[in-house]
């Protein structure tokens, strides 16, 4: 997993609430046995027309979105299916962070395990960000994980993240190494629990 420290990028705005993982990546793209190469299927049913051509009206297809690494989107992002392919597809397209007022639990877990940072902001900050970045797609935003701050223009706001996930992201390590290091504790637990 790639470490996340500090990122400055343009922002893609997708102002829709309750975007479910079936929209992020439709089920027909889950037939792969690989986690790579899913960026092309991100938001496939919104992004491509019925004939397979990119829909020029969809935000990801606009020239100013190319190269952007931050997605700003509506409430309860990532609800529905547990498919980790949603996080893989967002990363595959080039996103490293998603900003919303809330995230669905499983999506949030999946994102954190892959180095995709879910940033939760208040509805007021969310509205300010929406207004600014819809108006001025060339504007950039900085996400500093170490200090847990978002910076844009002359503004600065803090965002929450639990210390464990933050540490994993800053160091670019996944949780499995930590779990494996607890083998003696797990074995001790099993000897108690399985013989009760």
């Amino acid at each position: 997993m790639e470490a996340f420290k500090c990122l400055t990028s343009r922002v893609v705005v997708l102002p829709v609430d309750n975007i479910d993982t079936d929209q992020i990546i439709p089920a027909r793209f889950l037939k792969t046995t690989d986690k790579h190469g899913l960026g092309a299927s991100l938001f496939a049913d919104w992004r491509y027309l019925a004939d397979g051509q990119p829909d020029p009206a969809f935000v990801l297809n606009r020239p100013e979105s190319q190269g952007a690494q931050i997605l700003l989107t509506g409430d309860n992002f990532g609800c529905g299916s547990s498919r980790e392919h949603a996080a893989w597809a967002l990363l595959g397209w080039g996103f490293r962070a998603v900003i919303s007022t809330s995230f669905a639990d499983i999506f949030r877990n999946n994102a954190l395990k892959n180095g995709l940072l879910p940033v939760i902001v208040s509805p007021e900050v969310h509205q300010d960000l929406m207004r600014l970045f819809l108006q001025d797609p060339a504007q950039t935003l900085t996400i500093d994980l170490e200090t847990q701050t978002l910076r844009w223009l002359d503004r600065e706001v803090q965002f929450p993240i639990d210390p464990f996930s933050k540490d994993c992201l800053l160091r670019g390590v996944d949780e499995l190494g930590y779990l494996l290091s607890l083998e003696p504790e797990i074995a001790a637990f099993e000897s108690r629990y399985l013989t009760r």
Binding site: K35, S82, R83, E84, A87, N110, K113, N114, L176
Partner: peptide, 10 residues
């Protein structure tokens, strides 16, 4: 509860 593929691995 439902989990992602990384958690399946865990």
């Amino acid at each position: 509860f439902g989990i992602g593929t990384s958690e399946v691995e865990h």
